[in-house]
Design a protein around this nucleic acid. Structure first.
Lengths: 198, 198
DNA sequence: AGGCATTATGCAACCAGTTGCAATACGGTC
DNA sequence: GACCGTATTGCAACTGGTTGCATAATGCCT
């Protein structure tokens, strides 16, 4: 459960309203931690109750209903603790792989289309990342903060490149006649357990 | 929601009990779709109610309470449909990246330890994958099913290699004195928004 | 015979995330 | 002045996943 900490981080970067955060969570931090406005409003309420954040009432923002939050010392402390605590990586949920494995067992099923779709998504994402890289990190000397942010971005870039390369290979393999013909030809030899109610 | 379909796939590969599936979901399919025994039992119940699967009552398994399920035609059909439907990739939830970004904004916090821990996990995973590769896919000619399974495995391998390379780079960067000294030195120049309740 | 690990199944409560809906305010357009 | 897009906040219901607990049979060790 690290949504609150993602929000704290985002609020430390810039004090914001729930609405602004929601939009920030579609890009920026959203590239590695997505959240809907619902989750955000709810969590902001909880964090305010816990004394981690508070509404900035001063300023010319009282005309609208907009509530700009900022991080309190307790929140900063909570974030610091959370960062230094060990945590488990997320359990993987790769439905594409399930689909591929299903295809392997039930036979050709059109997964290639899905693969193609995902490949396009990865290419788009990589293009986004490259644009951010050119815009924010092409200067020669970066401050510590930016070095780290660039590190995060490079992780995304490397991952997308990996996905793209793999997807292309996968598509080529699935579409190669060898997979079809040869696969069918040697199928009887494979250990295929079929059990079906009539 | 693809747990039921992951279960169908696994049951098509081999008719099994909930318990066996639960163990299978710690390795094998579990490498890309994790599920606890609770989820599995519940889902098996639902799928049985929907007529997707049924208990194989025949055989010498009636002595114990063990319930071995197999896939019915309706289940196979449901799986086939699901595979050919477009689906959304999972939203990312990378708490490590959140931690790094938090570190970037609140200053050195000991993320390196976490990075090191994750790196070790990735190395272990890669070793598992390599072992599977050597055990199952070193033969020269693979049937279609195995070609696909190997493809899935190679995705895992490529991803883990990417994570490992990136983690090493990240650790080197975070620990290099340049990041520390130079980062601190140029910090005042960066656009750091600080807002804090006293 | 008693104890313990493993196999095997399941309920109940909870928590995080998703979906659908709703309301109000602001600013511009036809 | 009615209409529309978008900013802005929020409730309620639901679903999928997690955690803690309960139970019973099997088989092995001592």
């Amino acid at each position: 459960m690290s949504l609150p900490h993602a929000l704290l981080t985002s609020l430390l970067e810039k004090a914001s309203s729930g609405y602004e955060l929601a939009r920030r969570f579609e890009r920026s931090i959203g590239y590695f931690w997505k959240a809907t406005h619902q989750q955000i409003y709810r969590e902001l309420g909880r964090m305010e109750a816990k004394g981690w954040i508070a509404v900035t009432s001063e300023g010319p923002d009282r005309r609208s209903r907009k509530k700009v939050y900022h991080v309190l010392e307790a929140g900063r402390q909570a974030l610091r603790e959370w960062v230094s605590e060990p945590s488990h990586p997320m359990e993987p949920r790769e439905d594409l792989m399930v689909k591929l494995r299903a295809d392997a067992i039930i036979g050709p099923s059109g997964v290639e289309d899905e693969l193609e779709r995902r490949l396009a998504l990865h290419r788009d994402l990589l293009a986004d990342y490259r644009a951010i890289e050119a815009r924010d990190f092409s200067r020669p000397k970066l401050a510590r903060e930016d070095v780290i942010r660039y590190l995060i971005l490079r992780c995304g870039i490397a991952l997308e490149e990996t996905y793209i390369a793999w997807s292309e290979e996968a598509l080529a393999t699935l579409r190669s006649p060898a997979t079809e013909i040869f696969g069918e030809a040697t199928k009887p030899g494979a250990s295929s357990t079929k059990q079906d109610g009539k």
